[in-house]
Design a protein around this nucleic acid. Structure first.
Length: 111
DNA sequence: TATCTGACGATAG
DNA sequence: CCTATCGCCAGAT
């Protein structure tokens, strides 16, 4: 059977990302069962396949999709994801974590 | 089959 | 912080 193409696995992994959280291309690649290097192929699928919450996928540096930063930022904001200097706080939106244990009351937010 | 491209990742400078 | 280079994977030509 083998119906499990790479695009199908990637689509499932992306669709499994909880709302309000974000995953990196590498995370999706690994989640789909591929190597981190497959992150490029993952990006290609997201743009080709529709119906997927592609806005929940960001780069490893927390950077938004190039060319769609504006659109991407707005979609994330609608899910409750805030940005920091144009970047997403992966440590604060990683599925299964919620927040960093070291985020003390010190002036952490902003900057 | 070979070559190039692409919504990437990591390391080096 | 930024740019440059290599590595990885799948799809298109």
């Amino acid at each position: 059977m083998t119906g499990t193409g790479f695009a199908d696995r990637v689509a499932a992994a992306v669709a499994s990302i909880p709302a309000g959280t974000v995953a990196t291309y590498g995370e999706v690649a690994v989640e789909a069962g591929f190597a981190v290097g497959a992150s490029r192929a993952v990006g290609n699928v997201l743009q080709r396949v529709e119906g997927l919450p592609w806005w929940r996928v960001v780069t490893a540096g927390g950077r938004l999709v190039p060319g769609l930063e504006e659109r991407h930022a707005q979609l994330l904001a609608a899910e409750g994801v805030a940005l920091s200097e144009g970047r997403v706080r992966l440590d604060a939106h990683r599925p299964g974590r919620g927040r960093l244990p070291s985020a003390g009351p010190l002036g952490g937010e902003h900057r």
